[in-house]
């Protein structure tokens, strides 16, 4: 498949990148590893006339326990021993993205902003044309929830939930300077599958920063998908916790991706366990509440009822495991 022509820009500093972006916005896309963008361009999904390549911007590199550059490849992250022992959940998620070949190119920044997915969107141009285009690309109606004027495409990045539970922040640069945004508030229910994050069109993710507290937490990631390689998440459950010496919960956070248009935290529910000695009954209560709140729609391979039910199962298993609560066996 040949791509439609575009202009390719190769800045070498963050400042040069964002001033170029400021001039071109919104008629451009950043390209990092290209593993999400190029398949979409091949299917002529929202193609733009300019690409700004981040390949030569050296400030976007580097892994430490405080900071991971946006251009760090997922393959580098998953094999960094120090990072892996500090942030188990993040590395579990990175190692389950796609395949080793995709992770050799795919980056952390690209994963945070991976395009939302839908069975009616991730299709070739002739396929979409024959059915009639949809809101997210070239059309004016939604095939999944036709009665609504919004897009329900699913948030399908694996890293974001694991970073959100650690209270990690992204460092963002724009033509007007730099700012920090918590990963957990990069996306929320006010957006949809089209307005999928709160960055401005010219803004660039420079790095992910970890607060010192993140290193005191234990984290994990559980991913539901059909094949254990290749497939995007049909559900992704990230948890992070810390307990006192006597087992009391000092901190607990939960973020669920792969189900709705954004990775969702459940702070109101997890707060109820803080200060408590965890029991399987309390963990079940939390898992049941999550299952009742989430609203997947029918736009991925697995049925929404099943994904919803599995959200309850995975939350129960992950929280019980991280808090060391034995599950009853029958």
């Amino acid at each position: 498949m040949h791509l439609d022509p575009f202009e390719l820009h190769r800045p070498s500093s963050v400042e040069e990148t964002v001033s170029l972006a400021g001039r071109l916005a919104p008629a451009f896309d950043y390209i990092a590893g290209g593993t999400d963008l190029l398949p979409n361009y091949k299917m002529r999904l929202n193609v733009r006339p300019n690409l700004i390549a981040l390949e030569d911007v050296s400030e976007l590199r580097g892994i430490s326990l405080d900071r991971v550059g946006a251009m760090v490849r997922l393959g580098e992250l998953e094999t960094d021993p120090a990072f892996g022992s500090a942030y188990r959940g993040v590395v579990e998620a990175a190692a389950e993205v796609a395949t080793p070949l995709v992770r050799a190119s795919g980056t952390v920044g690209g994963n945070l902003l991976v395009e939302t997915r839908c069975f009616f969107f991730n299709q070739s141009f002739p396929w979409r044309k024959s059915l009639g285009f949809c809101l997210k690309a070239d059309g004016d109606k939604c095939h999944v929830v036709p009665q609504k004027e919004k897009c329900y495409a699913t948030f399908s990045g694996d890293l974001a939930p694991t970073l959100a539970v650690l209270d990690a922040e992204v460092e963002v640069a724009g033509p007007d300077g730099r700012r920090r945004v918590p990963v957990a508030s990069l996306y929320d229910a006010s957006g949809d599958g089209i307005q999928r994050h709160h960055l401005r069109p010219s803004e660039l993710i420079v790095a992910v920063h970890f607060p010192p507290e993140a290193r005191t937490l234990r984290g994990s990631y559980r991913k539901l998908r059909i094949r254990p390689s290749f497939d995007f998440p049909e559900l992704g459950v990230a948890v992070a916790a810390r307990q006192s010496a006597d087992g009391g919960v000092e901190r607990l956070a939960l973020s669920v991706g792969g189900l709705e248009t954004y990775p969702r935290r459940f702070d109101d529910l997890t707060r109820r366990l803080v200060g408590e000695r965890p029991t399987i009954a309390k963990v079940r209560e939390l898992a049941d509440a999550v299952r009742q709140l989430v609203r997947p729609v029918h736009n991925t391979a697995l049925a929404p009822d099943y994904r919803r039910k599995m959200a309850g199962v995975y939350v129960r298993r992950s929280v019980a495991e991280i808090l060391g609560v034995a599950e009853e066996t029958r």
């Binding site: 390209i31 590893g33 593993t35 398949p39 390949e55 190119s105």
Partner: peptide, 18 residues
Amino acid sequence: TVWVDGKPVLSCLTLARL
């Protein structure tokens, strides 16, 4: 699959100029 600097990558998702 081809190698770029010895590392296996997908040539179908690689811009030649980069």
